[in-house]
Structure formats: structure tokens, C-alpha cells
């Protein structure tokens, strides 16, 4: 699984990083984003909804998993 370390970054930087990195993720594969900005827990699922990707949830504090759908 690809891991993207955005710890210490303020929003919208983690979402920008995710949008760039998702291009390297194969369709159907999962990327894990590490982000501790308080907006990330809200904005990563919102980004998935807007960009038609699948939000898989937060398996650990400050970690968010996304499956590339398209």
C-alpha cells in the first residue's frame, strides 16, 4: 500500500498531496494518508465524495485510507 506522510501539514495541503499522489495508485488499489490537521478527517472523505474515489475510513488516529476507483 502506498503511504503518504502529510503529518504537520495544514489543510488544504494534505488533500492537494492526495490528489497528486492518487495518479500513482492503480485503480482498485489503496493509499493511506497520514495527516494530523484537524480538518483532514473531514476533508479527505469530502474529497473522495467530490472526486468519486472510495473512502475506506480511518484505521488509526491521523491515518485515512482511500481506494482509487477511477
Amino acid at each position: 500500500m502506498i503511504e503518504l506522510d502529510c503529518l504537520g501539514q495544514k489543510c488544504p495541503l494534505p488533500v492537494i498531496a492526495l490528489a497528486r499522489k492518487i495518479r500513482d495508485v492503480g485503480v482498485g488499489e489503496v493509499i493511506r494518508v497520514l495527516a494530523d490537521d484537524p480538518a483532514a478527517a473531514n476533508d479527505i472523505p469530502a474529497w473522495c465524495r467530490m472526486k468519486k474515489q472510495e473512502y475506506l475510513g480511518s484505521p488509526a488516529p491521523d491515518a485515512f485510507e482511500v481506494r482509487r476507483l477511477s
Binding site: 495544514k10 489543510c11 490537521d37 484537524p38 480538518a39 473531514n42 476533508d43 469530502a46
Partner: peptide, 24 residues
């Protein structure tokens, strides 16, 4: 309602409750 504009540096609790994008 973005966190960077709030005195608390947290995103708007209203946008969070709705589950909509909070930045920008």
C-alpha cells in the same frame, strides 16, 4: 468556515456536522 480562518484553528463545526468540504 475554513480552519485557517478560525480563532480555534479548527474547521467549522457546522461544515463538519454536514460532512462537506471545509477548506477553501
Amino acid at each position: 468556515g475554513s480552519s485557517c480562518t478560525a480563532s480555534t484553528l479548527r474547521p467549522s463545526h457546522v461544515l463538519e456536522a454536514m460532512g462537506v468540504l471545509s477548506h477553501g
